[in-house]
């Protein structure tokens, strides 16, 4: 059977529209399903109560702790490394090898970092699953991403800007702090937000290192659970009325999805703001 090119095009168009529709439907069903089941549970007391009372406040606090600690441990180190690799390191086989190594590590499944964190930080160094062990493990996990994304931001600064600054007699460091970093700032902020997103969604790694305590961690050496981890524990390990636990898990999902959407909006707003500033409509 021979199909005329026009008919073929019509069929192909139909199929591509269909595929776009499928992706929309997946998101719609996913979000609709979570909101349908979870929204009825969400109330002020759900957010402000302790975990045995059916709330999630300790998980929210713990998530914030882990995000901040991870950033403190990984962001300066990652940015410094990115600056060195993109602006100081001699070009050649070695730096190509280093980049390849970092890219590979960025793709290593998080559970392997979890296993590593468990064996080194929990068993050997700290002796217990705790906030610090979780944050150290997460810092190792996001470090490659942080380096690669900041490096990309730095590399996107036009060479002419850098040359102009150097030609005016600025030292390399003055060029970096006054020309390169301001120009690369949106990219660097995006890198940081990317890492925040990864910490919020990470479960496997923290399941192995953070401890599964229901309490708000009182110090670096206490355990806790992040929102994502709490969600997982609700449906798998918590004793109690299964229907209610699932409802609470759905409500926790709603909170997580809202956070994800807010993070996306924030990235969009920031990049819009910086784009406008770069065009000079300040």
């Amino acid at each position: 059977m021979n199909i005329s090119p026009k008919t073929a095009q019509k069929i192909a168009w139909l199929l591509t529209w269909l595929s776009g529709l499928i992706v929309f439907l997946i998101l719609a069903i996913l979000i609709g399903f979570i909101f349908y089941h979870g929204l009825s549970v969400i109330s002020w007391s759900f957010i402000s109560n302790s975990i045995p009372e059916g709330g999630i406040l300790p998980a929210i606090v713990c998530t914030i702790y882990i995000v901040l600690l991870t950033l403190v441990l990984s962001a300066p180190l990652g940015l410094g490394t990115a600056i060195y690799l993109s602006l100081y390191a001699p070009k050649g086989r070695f730096s190509e090898f280093v980049r390849y190594g970092i890219e590979t590590l960025a793709g290593v499944p998080s559970i392997i970092f979890g296993l590593f964190g468990m064996a080194l930080f929990v068993i050997v160094l700290l002796g217990t699953q705790c906030l610090l062990a979780g944050a150290l493990t997460m810092a190792c996990l996001v470090l490659p991403t942080m380096i690669l994304a900041s490096e990309e931001a730095i590399r996107s600064v036009p060479a002419s800007h850098i040359e102009a600054s150097l030609a005016l007699g600025a030292t390399k460091w003055q060029t970096i702090t006054k020309v390169i970093l301001p120009a690369a700032l949106p990219g660097i902020i995006t890198a940081v937000i990317l890492c925040v997103g990864r910490v919020i969604e990470e479960t496997a790694c923290l399941y192995a290192t953070l401890g599964l305590s229901m309490l708000t961690p009182g110090s670096l050496f206490h355990g806790g659970r992040t929102l994502a981890l709490h969600l997982y524990l609700l449906v798998t390990e918590m004793p109690g009325d299964r229907g209610l636990l699932i409802k609470q898990a759905m409500a926790t999902s709603v909170i997580l999805v809202i956070i994800v959407i807010l993070i996306n909006l924030l990235t969009r707003l920031l990049s819009g703001y910086f784009l406008a500033r770069m065009k000079g409509n300040n």
Partner: peptide, 12 residues
């Protein structure tokens, strides 16, 4: 948005 949704939510 799909990229950002945590994997436990997909699991749930």
């Amino acid at each position: 948005v799909l990229v950002g949704i945590p994997s436990v939510v997909y699991g749930l």
